[in-house]
Design a protein around this nucleic acid. Sequence first.
DNA 1: GCCCAGGTGGGAG
DNA 2: CTCCCACATGGG
Length: 277
Amino acid sequence: MKITIPFLDLEKMYNSGQQFTWNKIDNNKYSIIHKNNYLEISHIDKDEFEVSCSEDAFKSIWYSYFDLDTDYESLWIKGLVRGNEYLHNAVRYGWGIRILRQDPWEVIIMFLISQNNNMKRIRKSVDMLREKYGNITIYNDDNAHTHVYKTFPNTYLLETGYNQDQYKDCGLGYRDNYIKEIAEGWNDIIALLNEHKNDYKELIETLKLFKGTGNKVANCIALYGFHHLNAAPIDTHMKRIINEYFCGINPLDNFKGYEGIIQQWLFDYETNKNKSK
DNA sequence: GCCCAGGTGGGAG
DNA sequence: CTCCCACATGGG
């Protein structure tokens, strides 16, 4: 099915570091696994995309996933004119990066893995967790093609996997204990998070109760898993950006309510600008 | 061998 | 509160 999606650059989304569940099929085509759902998407022209799902599935699942109710274009234009040259260049470069509305469980696991780690290894670990502990799922798209894929592992599979002492094959290092604790207590944890998810500060404090989530990871979870667009994870790259290009003064403070999006564009520019286009 | 990677917990001061 | 350091693992 063809569909119009504004402000979306697939390649940038793939490399943006907000998810590790996309896979590259070819230069223009990506597969996405989100909860139990599978999507192939490719760019056709301008805002035109080809997606492998039906119109109903797009409406009920992917419309929200891509956050199509938020107007990224106007924020992007604001960002172009409200800051120094570095910010201008970063915002311009960030065209097409939206903040996905991902599943909290998946985000928590991915960003527990992310600490003191690099993007390549994070993606590899997430892939291995899916291959080992994901459910095999078969999906027939609207072109009558069959796709077989593994979902992101659910809590039960991660619990039993840990008990069988198989995590070590996924390159998680010392972070496996954090994941074990979250997986084992998940029912209580998600209930607690749902109680506090609407209040940013309460949510951050609740997340920080769990081992392995400090300020940075908590903000990643708030931004990517609960869509608090004001949540701005400050990692090693963002620290360097702030010190090198903004005299130590956090430029995100000029974008109240949307700090997380500007952060995403700055992060992407700093980590990807030197890659060949 | 070294240093780094979307950091954090724990201890000491 | 801030400053140390150890923590697995693989790539440069």
